[in-house]
């Protein structure tokens, strides 16, 4: 069925009766929500939303898989990634070292578009499912190669209870505990 244009009349309302009933309807709906707000607010640091698997959070490098192709640095739309040269042990002769390129990332500029993860031919980059980390200064947001390989600490998880927002027909979103309570 192809789409089509449908001309509709504007619903008219007028007269004293409609005025009174509309006022009452508005008041009733207000009182209904006043009595049962059906809210889904998250008391953020006390509770925090646990995001789905597949959420595009911080990007982490798996150095073992990296083949130094530099595709991630070239696709990055905000030029947040850069290839640096570091010495690594020679694959055949352990006493020698060779220079190899690895990406580093500047999280001041990253926009979490995930292009680098998707372009990586060996799946050496991956997302973690959190993004709310505060840094004390800007310089810390520039990750060197060692930091780039570790998943960052997630202090929110230590302080708060994880909750999950579930889409619900009656409540819109329903806040449910993400995990069963321990003990």
């Amino acid at each position: 069925m192809p789409p089509k244009v449908a001309v509709k009349p504007l619903p008219k309302r007028g007269g004293l009766l409609a005025g009174v009933s509309d006022n009452l309807a508005a008041l009733m709906i207000g009182i209904k929500y006043f009595l049962n707000p059906k809210r889904f607010s998250i008391y953020y640091p006390k509770e925090y939303p646990e995001l789905r698997k597949g959420y595009r959070g911080f990007i982490i490098l798996n150095k073992q898989k990296c083949i130094s192709c530099a595709a991630c640095a070239r696709i990055c739309p905000s030029a947040a990634m850069k290839m640096i040269r570091v010495p690594v042990p020679h694959p055949k002769e352990p006493e020698k070292t060779v220079m190899k390129q690895f990406p580093v990332i500047n999280y001041q500029r990253c926009i979490f578009c995930g292009y680098c993860v998707d372009i990586c031919p060996t799946e050496a980059l991956y997302h973690v499912n959190y993004h709310d980390i505060v840094y004390e200064n800007l310089a810390e947001m520039f990750w060197d190669l060692d930091t780039f390989q570790k998943e960052p600490e997630y202090p929110t998880a230590e302080e708060g209870i994880p909750v999950r927002l579930m889409i619900h027909e009656e409540y819109g979103l329903l806040k449910v505990p993400a995990r069963e309570k321990q003990g």
């Binding site: 030029a79 947040a80 500047n106 001041q108 500029r109 200064n137 800007l138 310089a139 810390e140 520039f142």
Partner: peptide, 13 residues
């Protein structure tokens, strides 16, 4: 002119 990746990064930690 586009800034490069190191611009805006303070030198000291």
């Amino acid at each position: 002119r586009e800034e490069n990746i190191y611009e805006g990064v303070p030198k000291s930690g």
